[in-house]
């Protein structure tokens, strides 16, 4: 029970901090050296979505392989 409260409180703390990480004041250095434009017109999220599709696709493939090997293990036993 205590473990669960700890988990929940840390999760809510994280959710609370998230907007401040994403939306805090932009400094001049950030405008100069980082992809400030990409963030302001929203296209960075397209990139995030594409990379997520690749990573999750690869993981799905791994899960399927894992399942196939588990089946083989059962058959050979």
């Amino acid at each position: 029970m205590r473990k669960r409260t700890l988990l929940l409180s840390s999760a809510s703390l994280f959710l609370f901090l998230l907007p401040s990480l994403l939306l805090a004041q932009v400094t001049d250095a950030e405008k100069k050296y980082t992809a400030f434009e990409m963030r302001s017109n929203g296209k960075i999220y397209v990139l995030v979505a594409c990379i997520l599709i690749i990573v999750l696709g690869l993981i799905c493939y791994l899960v399927r392989l894992d399942g196939k090997i588990s089946k083989l293990e059962k058959e050979t036993k």
């Binding site: 994403l22 100069k32 990139l47 995030v48 990379i51």
Partner: peptide, 8 residues
């Protein structure tokens, strides 16, 4: 990709 990083 989204969180803020130090500008260098």
């Amino acid at each position: 990709l989204l969180f803020r990083v130090p500008a260098r």
